[in-house]
């Protein structure tokens, strides 16, 4: 009887359950409660993993889209960063160049302070004549219209002798380097009791200066590689006590009473930026550098050595 009724009204009963069960649930769960009900717990157990999978899938798809599909923005951003990087690199190089320039100017100022007897005019190197063997044979300087400049004046740096003014026009001047074949500088090696003159060799593949001296009878110590060669000031062009170069590693060449040494220039002409032009040498007031002052051997610019590749 009951079974017949259930079968007969099955549809109505199930519909009533489907409509009334949520109402009962709402009634129960709508109350203010603190604990989680069994239904809520089971629903959470079913929905939470699905939600987690959905989130993971969405995140994965988003990552895939961002990393592999939507690369247009990345490419554009990459170009922007590269442009920015180039600008920053340029600024860094400029900053480094300014730092180096400041360092050189500080050294020049320090040199001027130690040589009070010299009246000097600062000048900036604006060009270099380079030979076919990539060796500097002449430099051009900008004197900024400084007064008192004439041909033949010495051009020096804190490192040593550069050369002398050969030509002067307006604010520019061409400097003949001490390594030029026409150049001649009276020189000495402190403590070795020798004097002589330094000349440019002028050979095509041997861009070095040659030290020529007379054997002295009262010379106590032999001349060794690395000895610093300084100006004596006797030529009335270069102030005394300036470094011209160092004795090279090669053996001396005996030519009659003369002994020739190949020198490495004290100044790196290839990287020369700022120089001083000596406009006046108040001789007696000029205090030459003490001969016993330690002089570190400088790194020789390969471009200025005889072994420079052709």
């Amino acid at each position: 009887m009951l079974r017949d009724l259930l079968v007969r009204y099955r549809q109505t009963l199930l519909l009533a359950v489907a409509l009334l069960l949520p109402v009962a649930s709402m009634y129960f769960h709508g109350k203010t409660r603190t604990e989680t009900s069994v239904v809520e717990r089971n629903l959470l157990a079913v929905t939470a993993p699905l939600t987690r999978v959905a989130h993971a899938t969405v995140d994965g798809a988003r990552g895939l889209a961002n990393d592999y599909v939507l690369l247009v923005d990345v490419s554009q951003r990459n170009e922007e960063l590269q442009r920015e990087n180039r600008i920053l690199l340029g600024e860094a190089l400029k900053s480094r160049a300014l730092t180096e320039e400041l360092q050189r100017v500080k050294q020049l100022c320090g040199f001027r302070a130690t040589r009070q007897g010299l009246a000097t005019v600062p000048a900036r190197v604006i060009g270099r004549d380079v030979s076919q063997f990539f060796q500097v044979v002449r430099v051009r300087i900008d004197t900024a219209g400084a007064a008192g400049l004439v041909e033949g004046q010495a051009v020096i740096t804190h490192d040593g002798v550069v050369g002398r003014i050969e030509k002067l026009a307006d604010v520019w001047a061409d400097v003949m380097l001490v390594s030029d074949a026409r150049s001649q500088v009276h020189a000495t090696i402190p403590g070795k009791g020798v004097v002589g003159s330094v000349r440019g060799k002028g050979r095509r593949n041997e861009f070095a200066v040659q030290f020529v001296y007379l054997e002295s009878t009262d010379r106590h110590e032999p001349i060794r590689a690395g000895d610093a060669v300084l100006t004596t000031g006797h030529d009335h062009v270069f102030p005394a006590g300036l470094e011209i170069g160092h004795i090279g590693d090669g053996a001396a060449v005996h030519n009659g009473p003369w002994h020739e040494f190949v020198l490495a220039p004290a100044v790196s002409y290839a990287t020369l930026e700022e120089v001083l032009v000596v406009t006046q040498d108040r001789g007696p007031d000029t205090a030459p550098l003490p001969s016993d002052m330690p002089r570190p051997r400088r790194a020789v610019d390969p471009a200025n050595t005889p072994d420079a590749p052709p």
Binding site: L21, P22, V23, M26, F28, G30, E40
Partner: peptide, 10 residues
């Protein structure tokens, strides 16, 4: 779960 269980079912 902000709404009472049964609201959306109904």
């Amino acid at each position: 779960l902000a709404a009472p269980i049964g609201v959306y079912t109904e």
